[in-house]
Design a protein around this nucleic acid. Structure first.
Lengths: 194, 194
DNA sequence: GCATCACCATACTCTAGCGTATGGTGATGG
DNA sequence: CCATCACCATACGCTAGAGTATGGTGATGC
């Protein structure tokens, strides 16, 4: 909405970015439907009088927060594509990255739960498409023909989505247990060609 | 709440079961959070005065509707276990059954989206556990050792859950297209041992 | 040294949905 | 044939959250 002078006094005042960040945190914790402006304001220690100065309404907040998250996620994807050379390592890192980057994945998990929401839907579509193309490319590099690679990418991404779902249901083995590593190993061996 | 005499006059009056069925239909269409008593009453052409005669409140309706759905789902599972002899066919039918039994799967899909809801969560846990045991048993019959079978069952069920998620995002190939059959074929070949 | 502006509080209105209280009505059994 | 009961309508009050209007305050520029 504006620049931020902020000389001394280090943050007595809130910016639109602060609201968006806190909004994402709230989404990560309680889902999209829990993103309400009055509770959010309480959580930030102010009243909604502040909020309506920065945003025109709840819709605008969600829009901006989603854009912010999507950009962050896109950067993450491209970064891993640049850093890791061998396609097999890229695929393995795709699964191993779940426990790290916790907040990003929690947000995504809640967004999945809110598919059907008009503002969330297009974001989910773009993100899934990007990631699946990322996977398909890696599978092609590993020697699969395009059609097969595409199917394998969809399958692999489904496994990831299913894992997020089971996690939300508390039906995934403890992430710091041997069972978890066993399972990941199993998944990698079944889905990623040697 | 009571018996149903209902001599002639064929259904001018509503029963608790009617409300529960319609509630499930509404959940299938618009999700759990959309299950509100006044909109539901409007949909049924009556007012909530009727509803509160049959149920103590929204919570009780959800509880009963969920129980009804879970029982129906359990019967389905056991039926397929009794009807189909060969374990491979059982696994194949697990995937092929998605397009049929549409309402049941749509409800389940929406329940998954509402994981975290205190009344929904235990249902999801039980259903997923039942189904995964069902899968694990079939994999064991196909010669996998118990640990491996369990992992494979989790993996397979994740694929199913991921598919439901992609379907809610309209990112699944058209179910009556060749691409869809291709994909299912691919999934079966990858996950089910010969 | 004061006017401005960015930021926030306060105090409203409005709506949707929950739950309650109570009265009406048509079918039924005694 | 009328009293009862099952079922439903109507009219309440209550709450949470959306959005609006407006006033207050502290820092900053001129």
């Amino acid at each position: 909405m504006n620049a931020k002078p902020l000389k001394k006094q280090e943050r007595v005042t809130l910016s639109a970015a602060d609201w968006e960040r806190e909004a994402l945190a709230l989404v990560a914790e309680h889902g999209v439907q829990a993103l309400a402006v009055e509770p959010l304001a309480r959580r930030m220690g102010v009243t909604k009088g502040s909020f309506y100065w920065h945003f025109t309404g709840r819709e605008a907040l969600l829009e901006n927060a989603l854009r912010r998250w999507e950009e962050h996620d896109s950067r993450n994807l491209n970064r891993s594509l640049g850093e890791i050379d061998h396609p097999r390592d890229r695929l393995v890192s795709f699964f191993r990255r779940v426990p790290r980057e916790k907040l990003t994945h929690e947000v995504y998990s809640e967004l999945c739960a809110a598919a059907g929401h008009p503002q969330v839907e297009p974001v989910l579509e773009r993100v899934a498409e990007r990631r699946m193309q990322h996977l398909a490319a890696a599978f092609e590099e590993l020697g699969l023909d395009p059609v097969r690679a595409r199917n394998q990418a969809r399958l692999t991404y489904s496994v990831y989505l299913g894992f997020l779902q089971l996690q939300r249901q508390h039906q995934t083995p403890n992430l710091s247990s041997g069972d978890f590593d066993d399972y990941i190993e199993h998944v990698i061996n079944t889905l990623i060609p040697a």
